[in-house]
Amino acid sequence: MPRPVKSTTAATTADEDVARQQAEITRLLLHHIHAPLAADLYLRGILPAPAPAEAVRFVIGSRKTRTPEGLLGYEIPLRANGEHGELRTGHDITGILRTLLTGTHIWSTSRVSDVMGMTLIRVDPATLAPCTANRDDRALTVLHGITAPAPEERPDPRLRGFLYLTKDRLRLYLDSPSAPSVIAADVRPSGGVTALLTALPSLLAEERLRTVDDADPHCRCLVDLTGP
């Protein structure tokens, strides 16, 4: 149950390189809420892993599944070769996810846990066979570069992830220069989207609207924007 945010709670500043890459991966993979990653498996959420982990959690399920209980999460480290390695790109992540979603994989119990009502598997990409980009992936890179290039300036707020909670409740994970730690915002896609996007920066800044959801470790606080 959400509770008020204590005024003495200090925001944890995420490493900016990791935060930027989480946002970039989210931007590049958003189309997989419509386009399957494999068979009938779609992206149902992207979660910024709680600090200090340099990782992203990808939530997978069927296209009709929009509740955490029917979803499966994979935590993938962002660095390719330990803590000093290069950060993985969205295309690297797509290949890893496709490998995970095809064939049979056996997981050690030490790598399996629960979060927000769904099973979470912590993946070691070094144990997986590599999956290279296909022609459609490469075509998408070209199209993205022309129609949706990476922003030159940091968006405010910046989208770090999202998660379907119900059929009409979507949780956004955001940060901004004034609030570098992750703030979650629950919204209704069926509502007034244009008005919501216009008002979102000011609503996130309203301290009185912030609560804490103890069941969600991916954000410091929560703003519920689903009301009338």
Results as ranks from 00 to 15, higher is better:
residue 13 T to A: 09
residue 32 H to M: 06
residue 69 E to H: 02
residue 47 L to M: 12
residue 56 V to Y: 01
residue 68 P to R: 03
residue 48 P to N: 11
residue 63 R to C: 01
residue 42 Y to G: 01
residue 50 P to W: 01
residue 63 R to M: 13
residue 33 I to Q: 13
residue 38 A to H: 14
residue 38 A to E: 10
residue 36 P to D: 04
residue 76 I to H: 02
residue 14 A to M: 07
residue 43 L to S: 03
residue 21 Q to F: 00
residue 55 A to M: 08
residue 61 G to D: 12
residue 17 D to Y: 02
residue 14 A to I: 03
residue 59 V to M: 05
residue 37 L to E: 10
residue 11 A to G: 12
residue 61 G to N: 08
residue 37 L to K: 12
residue 19 A to G: 04
residue 72 L to H: 11
residue 58 F to T: 11
residue 51 A to L: 02
residue 45 G to F: 07
residue 43 L to T: 09
residue 58 F to Y: 15
residue 64 K to S: 14
residue 24 E to N: 04
residue 62 S to K: 10
residue 77 P to H: 02
residue 14 A to G: 02
residue 40 D to Q: 15
residue 44 R to C: 15
residue 68 P to C: 07
residue 48 P to G: 05
residue 52 P to Q: 04
residue 12 T to N: 00
residue 43 L to Q: 07
residue 24 E to C: 04
residue 62 S to E: 15
residue 55 A to L: 01
residue 26 T to E: 05
residue 48 P to F: 06
residue 41 L to V: 11
residue 55 A to N: 06
residue 12 T to S: 03
residue 42 Y to F: 15
residue 34 H to D: 15
residue 55 A to R: 11
residue 40 D to Y: 10
residue 19 A to T: 08
residue 18 V to D: 08
residue 30 L to K: 04
residue 28 L to P: 00
residue 67 T to S: 13
residue 54 E to S: 13
residue 24 E to G: 01
residue 66 R to C: 10
residue 49 A to L: 02
residue 43 L to G: 08
residue 53 A to P: 04
residue 40 D to C: 13
residue 71 L to S: 05
residue 71 L to Q: 09
residue 42 Y to R: 11
residue 19 A to E: 07
residue 61 G to P: 05
residue 56 V to G: 13
residue 64 K to V: 12
residue 71 L to M: 15
residue 51 A to E: 08
residue 71 L to K: 02
residue 56 V to H: 06
residue 16 E to C: 05
residue 38 A to Y: 13
residue 60 I to P: 03
residue 70 G to C: 01
residue 23 A to K: 05
residue 57 R to H: 05
residue 47 L to A: 07
residue 62 S to F: 08
residue 37 L to Q: 12
residue 26 T to V: 11
residue 50 P to S: 09
residue 14 A to Q: 00
residue 65 T to R: 08
residue 17 D to S: 08
residue 46 I to R: 00
residue 39 A to Y: 14
residue 58 F to V: 14
residue 29 L to W: 04
residue 74 Y to H: 09
residue 68 P to W: 01
residue 13 T to S: 08
residue 77 P to Y: 00
residue 70 G to P: 01
residue 32 H to Q: 09
residue 32 H to C: 07
residue 72 L to E: 00
residue 24 E to I: 08
residue 70 G to Y: 06
residue 29 L to Q: 03
residue 22 Q to K: 03
residue 21 Q to S: 09
residue 21 Q to T: 09
residue 53 A to C: 06
residue 55 A to G: 11
residue 27 R to V: 11
residue 54 E to A: 12
residue 31 H to Q: 14
residue 59 V to N: 05
residue 20 R to K: 06
residue 22 Q to I: 10
residue 53 A to F: 12
residue 38 A to F: 09
residue 51 A to I: 05
residue 23 A to N: 04
residue 48 P to H: 10
residue 57 R to F: 02
residue 39 A to V: 10
residue 77 P to R: 04
residue 32 H to T: 04
residue 54 E to I: 07
residue 68 P to Q: 06
residue 50 P to E: 04
residue 41 L to W: 08
residue 15 D to P: 07
residue 23 A to L: 00
residue 75 E to I: 08
residue 28 L to Q: 14
residue 11 A to Y: 00
residue 59 V to F: 09
residue 47 L to V: 12
residue 46 I to Y: 00
residue 16 E to L: 08
